[in-house]
């Protein structure tokens, strides 16, 4: 949407941007700089290093990447792997597939059923975290939970979700929680596809899957990419599983945000907490970069 003469001059544009810039500097950039600085010290909140923090160079980073122990549960490497599984499972598979499925199923449909399901999915997204956590704890309970009551009814027994499959449980939870965003995004994207494309395909006798593969997926590539990068970022940084599992049992659900919380707020080790945040930031940055490159490549092709 490039115009010959922009509607806003650079000066006015900056003026319009200034409130946002103020907030961003104060609450995003300043804290981030603080985090970077503190990550090179042994600053803590209690104990001897609270009063006299020392510059420790790269020590916090070296401790994080101590390859002898870093895969032991409760350490950084282990947390990274859990986070990766969590992102792949709940964001890339859970939310994208679920959201896409819902969007396609309701594409060009009307009526109460569509409205009902649509509203239900969005409710799951907007209900407060704390409430959702209570509801899911009850839902997943081994002995009394609704999920196991149903599984038991159809002869699948009562799996111990919270103890035996805790990571799967939070993946399921987060897929449920976040599917709405992908659904909304894909629904809007589908609405931009001219109906004539699909009608032509139908006349030509294309099957359901052919239509998906040859028409819908290619047209939605950009949207899928955007969706992926946004929900990857959000999932990577979400703290919600904490309310469900607290990171346990035995650190099996300790994703990176919960790991940071434990180091910074249970052990008050700000130096190490800062280092983890910086590494997480670098990973986020790399993801976004990959995404931007892919977008550019796509723009070249089309």
């Amino acid at each position: 949407m490039e115009q010959r003469r922009p509607i806003l001059t650079l000066k006015t544009g900056t003026f319009f941007l200034s409130p946002a810039i103020f907030f961003v500097i104060l609450f995003l950039i300043v804290p981030f700089v603080w985090i970077i600085v503190v990550s090179f010290t042994n600053q803590s909140l209690t104990g001897a290093t609270a009063l006299n923090p020392e510059f420790v160079g790269l020590q916090n980073y070296l401790d994080l990447f101590n390859f002898d122990t870093w895969l032991t549960r409760g350490n950084f490497g282990s947390s990274m792997i859990i986070t990766l599984e969590f992102v792949i499972g709940s964001a890339w598979i859970g939310q994208v597939v679920l959201g896409m499925g819902l969007a396609i199923a309701f594409y060009r449909r009307k009526g109460a059923l569509r409205e009902f399901v649509n509203t239900l999915v969005i409710l799951c997204w907007i209900i407060p975290d704390v409430v959702v956590a209570f509801s899911w704890s009850a839902y997943l309970d081994r002995d009394y939970g609704t999920l196991n009551a149903i599984l038991n009814l159809i002869g699948l027994g009562r799996p111990d979700w919270q103890l035996a499959f805790p990571l799967f449980a939070i993946i399921l939870f987060n897929s449920w929680r976040g599917a709405a965003f992908s659904m909304l995004l894909f629904s809007s994207a589908l609405a931009t596809i001219p109906p004539s494309y699909l009608e032509t395909a139908e006349v030509a006798g294309a099957s359901f899957w052919q239509k998906q593969r040859d028409i819908i997926l290619p047209l939605l590539r950009g949207h899928i990419l955007t969706d992926m990068v946004l929900i990857t970022l959000w999932t990577f940084n979400t703290f919600s599983p904490f309310l469900l599992t607290g990171g346990g049992p035995a650190f099996k659900t300790e994703v990176i945000s919960i790991f940071t919380y434990r180091i910074a707020f249970k052990f008050f080790d700000f130096g190490m907490g800062g280092a983890i945040a910086v590494v997480a930031m670098v990973i986020n940055f790399a993801l976004a970069l990959v995404y931007l490159l892919m977008l550019r490549k796509q723009a070249v092709y089309s």
């Binding site: 804290p31 981030f32 940084n237 703290f239 940071t260 910074a264 707020f265």
Partner: peptide
């Protein structure tokens, strides 16, 4: 967007 994931994260609570 990237920065916002830091600010909503736990590490920035202290600053």
């Amino acid at each position: 967007m990237l920065f916002s994931s830091v600010v909503t994260g736990t590490a920035a609570m202290v600053p």
